[in-house]
Design a protein around this nucleic acid. Structure first.
Lengths: 344, 344
DNA sequence: CACGTTTGCTCAATCGATGGAGCATGATTG
DNA sequence: CAATCATGCTCCATCGATTGAGCAAACGTG
């Protein structure tokens, strides 16, 4: 009864996705045989190569795709690895997302990333959701409250690892923020070692004083000033938040005249700084930035950028997923410092 | 017997996640009651408010999180929405990812994004994987072969939508590349309408000649030249690929002297152009770029950028997920043109 | 007080894949 | 030729949540 409009020749006309039961019927065999052929355990289960080939062919023809929900439900491990990430709007997080996916796939894991907008409640909800998805392991990137997530994961029997921001209830992998900030501050201070600006302190801008990374970077910033014997007044440290607008407002509100050198704590903060500079072209300054961006690297006045070693951090993270590491473990990965042209 | 190290008081000591069966036992009720309370159907199923509260309390105490695999397996719709995305390394794709997640969540859907590195095979594999995850709908962003994916989805009974690059087998939402490119070209040509450069054609660089968006942009580029009555030699169109290195190489190989104005087809191409410029400081030019980046907007010589209306495109995409749109539908969303300072 | 109706819950089949246990064959050995 | 073993499969319980069907008790009505 070819009443026209039949599509394809070998395809079943069924609108639903074929299951192993459908394939078993088509192949005149049992669902278990089909299952074992399609998941690669057929040799162990002593299925003949002949049958395996026949089943594979039919599966191909039917456009079969395993139902992962059913598969995961039955299996002990899900092979799903989850990551929560605050934002996608800069190169650092973009690189983490991309490389995380690639590394997970290379290990036969299915990566699921979810973006939490730096909102603590969304973060926790996302963690709960990923646990609902039966992730074998959850990576919390830049979480505001990593310990809450780690505790929840521990209770659910899910391994967790902190990335970028450390916590005390799960192993952590972070950049060596202290050394990176110290080196960048040194670079800036060297620029001003000679002429008029000699001995003047820099201005630190951006980030949250309460967050570990910002605190560490401030520590490095202070250490370099101490090395150079330059006194650092407390008002020169402005952890005004990450958003670009916050930085603009903070610079507007800065009481005295601006220092000749700025330590900018993130690329997003740098956006605000540069916008402020555009509004105040008379106030010349040079800057360095903790974080890397290819276009920001080309901005005039940029003396240097600190690039975090994403590949190194993720390699360590995946190493930790495979071992039973202590929650106290805190791995610090050195940053890469990019010396730039500055004024020239 | 407080032998130290016991954790919590009400928490079960069980290392496994509690199921509705565990909760039912603790509450002295049936799994069905627990299920209906936790998924919100308890009123319809005439469970008393008293029992509902008791169950909710116990679930809370036990840190219960539903097993989505089991839930989806049983349900007709999964409420999972998938997206494949070529890269995360620029603001455009970052914005798409972020807003896609936010919009999906706002609709009670679970978003899963996967990054395919512009590799056709990875793209198809990712699509198959997402179908395995029972996505209700799959969005292909910037796919090199969207029709292959659409066909696979159709066979699996999964709705699909193309974003950014159009296809013929599923409804598509793309930027109005022609108009955007024409407007940007006009902007550039106006810059050169007066002095020495008058009547000189621009150079188009970046993208793939085979891809729809690049073709449309070239069409807009040509249309603006025609409007201005400026002849455009074919060698002034260089769709050398997207990668930064390709652009550098193409500029190195450019036979005659470089035009005074460049139409750069993406921010990633612009990276190569700017690196080339740094190597060849004597060759001055101005440029416009199809795509937006906050730091690139601040580069000297940047005359204007075309920002794609991500919010507008995604709003349309979600509108389409809710309706049964024709595969021939091709929605074009106007771009936002950002006029910049240029040389000044 | 017999009979319908509402309330509040439980039973059990089901979704699709998995894998331990087991059952026919046919081949090998003493 | 019986006993043993390897080969090539199939059977079926299981994972956890969902939901139509159904049951008992309480309540209402003439």
């Amino acid at each position: 009864m070819d009443t026209g409009g039949s599509d394809g020749q070998k395809e079943k006309i069924s609108p639903k996705r074929p299951t192993i039961y459908d394939l078993a019927e088509l192949a005149g065999t049992s669902p278990s045989a089909v299952s074992s052929v399609l998941n690669g355990t057929w040799k162990k289960r002593r299925i003949s190569e002949k049958l395996a080939k026949r089943i594979s062919k039919i599966a191909e023809e039917q456009g079969y795709a395993v139902n992962i929900q059913a598969s995961v439900l039955r299996r002990v491990r899900s092979n799903i690895i989850g990551m929560i990430m605050p934002k996608y709007d800069n190169r650092y997080f973009g690189a983490i997302a991309e490389q995380f996916e690639a590394l997970a796939r290379a290990r036969g894991l299915f990566p699921v990333i979810t973006c939490t907008q730096r909102e603590p409640e969304l973060e926790f909800e996302a963690a709960r959701e990923l646990v609902s998805y039966q992730v074998d392991c959850l990576i919390s990137t830049g979480a505001t409250d990593p310990d809450r997530i780690s505790e929840f994961c521990a209770a659910a029997g899910v391994r967790s690892i902190n990335l970028d921001l450390p916590g005390s209830k799960a192993p952590s992998v972070v950049s060596d923020n202290f050394a990176g900030a110290r080196d960048l501050t040194r670079l800036l201070l060297q620029r001003f070692a000679a002429p008029a600006a000699e001995g003047q302190p820099l201005l630190f801008i951006g980030g949250r004083g309460s967050d570990h990374n910002t605190a560490e970077r401030i520590r490095g910033f202070e250490a370099a000033h101490a090395e150079f014997g330059i006194p650092l007044p407390p008002e020169n440290i402005l952890p005004c938040g990450y958003a670009a607008q916050k930085a603009e407002d903070a610079l507007d509100a800065f009481p005295s005249s601006l220092p000749a050198g700025l330590f900018v704590n993130s690329t997003i903060t740098l956006e605000g700084v540069i916008r402020w500079q555009a509004r105040n072209p008379s106030r010349a300054f040079e800057f360095g930035c903790f974080d890397w961006d290819p276009f920001a690297a080309l901005l005039p006045g940029n003396v240097g950028m600190v690039q975090q070693d994403v590949a190194g951090m993720l390699a360590k993270v995946f190493e930790l997923t495979a071992t039973e590491a202590s929650p106290d473990l805190n791995v610090e990965i050195p940053c890469i410092i990019k010396r730039l042209g500055g004024q020239g």
